[in-house]
Structures are given as structure tokens and as C-alpha cells.
Amino acid sequence: MSLSNLIKNWSTLRVKRPYEDQYKDKDYKWAMVIDLDACTGCNACTTACYAENNLPVVGKEAFSKGQAMHWIRIERYWGEGDELPKFPDRGAQFLPMLCQQCESAPCEVVCPVGATHHTPDGLNSQVYNRCIGSRYCSANCPYKVRYFNWWQYPERAWPNPLEQQLNPDVTVRSKGVMEKCTFCVQRLVEAKNRARTEGRRVEDGEVTTACAQACPTSAITFGNLADNKSQVAKMWARQQVDLAKDKQEKSDENMRGYRIFEDLRTYPSIVYMERIRDLQA
């Protein structure tokens, strides 16, 4: 960052984030809504993510040590907290957990080398070239969605000729760097470039993430929150979730939209819609 840039953008750099109407005049703020009532826990999103983002399959042994590299994982909940499941025969509740792209991200402030920072369109970026593998960010992430390359996976995960399946738009990460969900930034950049050439903003539905694209029940909605007419912005508004608030005031307590660990003041970019269960039946 040059000195002139620092002086020019001093007011926006020094302000506490997020603030009201932060993205009002901006072109993009990428956000997501996940409807847990529609999620069937089929893992299609995870599979799509593995294919899109060159995620290595680490194998049974590494998986048992918790070294799996799934940027989006399906969490299973059988009961609330420590209590026993009320309806074990009805199966688990599922929750797709991915990087929440927090507006005030705990991981960003602890990186000693500035490998992770906030992009102007509201993403929490991770630059592999800068990462030295201190793993502070992973330790400070309340969602535990940052994954560390403990081993040199590429040769093992994609033996010849499987390297042909790799996505050329995404770097193959090597040993010793941290990685995380990017909201499929390679697709976003491509869509933004195309839109800029045509002199417009990216339209709603023009670009989506691999997980949202693969979801058979359309439980995941992805879009631009800075665009009032986008589906995501409408859903956020309908659920009365405000990006810059850590406590949402809702007019109706039956409203399902919530953000995970809001009280930690991370201001996530993903709204989950609570699952409805018929407790009488």
C-alpha cells in the first residue's frame, strides 16, 4: 500500500467495520443464505467443492486425525447441546459449514504476515504465496473452517493422469499453507471482468458458487448483497438480518434467519434459516 493510497483512503481504512450502509454505494458484497429446512445432508456441495477448488482427498488416516481439507463440510446434530435427541428415528439435523466470510474476521487480525485480509467486495481472502503456515488464523477462527496443508498432497491425491482433472483457475496448494473457502473467487473475478467490459454490474444469478450450483434442493442461495434487487438481499431483508448488527431485532419471533455465533461480533456473510420441526407428530 502506497502512502498516497493511505492518505486518500484514510477515513475508510480507519473506521470500525462493519458500519451501517457500508456497501450501499459499492458494487459488490458477496453473501449467502443457506436454508437448513431444505438441506438433506446429501454432501453434493462438498463434492462439488472438491472438484471446483482442487481439494485433495487426504485418505483415511489423515482424515481420522482431523486433517481433511473440505472447505464445506456437513455437520450433524442429533440434539440440542448436551441433551439427548428427541427424535433419534428421524435422523440428524444437517448444517453445511463453510467459511462465513466475516466482516470483522478474527482470522485476519492475527495473521503475522498479512496473508489474509478483507477484499473490497467483502470477502476474506487468503493469499497462499504470503502464508508462512503459522496457523494462528485457524486457531482464532470460531467456526473452524480453515484447513492446513500438513503434507504435500498433490502427488498423492492426483497421481498421473488424474492431474488432468485439476481446475486451472485455482492454485494447487503445497505443504505448509493455510486454505479456506473462497466463495469460488475465480468465478467471481471472471464474472466481474466480463461485466466491466460490458459496462454494467454483475447481474443476479449470473455467477454462483460451486456448492450452490450443485445443491439438488436449492438450499444455498448466493448473490450480491449490495444489489437491493438480488435474491440474497431480498432474503436478508425478509429475515430482518442486518450485516452490521450483532443482535438482530425481529418483528416476528418465528422468523428463521440467523447467523452463527453472532454474539462473537464476527458479522458473518452467511445467513442460515433454521429448520422447522413438528414436535407434536
Binding site: T119, L123, V189
Partner: peptide, 25 residues
Amino acid sequence: QKDHLENANTTKTSNGPNDCWQCHK
């Protein structure tokens, strides 16, 4: 970081993107 004219008919300038993820995959 330089100020470039936005097009031939204007004096408005802007910089190139300064965002890591614009160029780093």
C-alpha cells in the same frame, strides 16, 4: 497505482484494482 483516464472523453481517473484476489489465484 497510477491514475488512468477512464475513457477518451473524460478527465475522470481511476486506479487499477488493488485487491490481492484480483490477480492471485
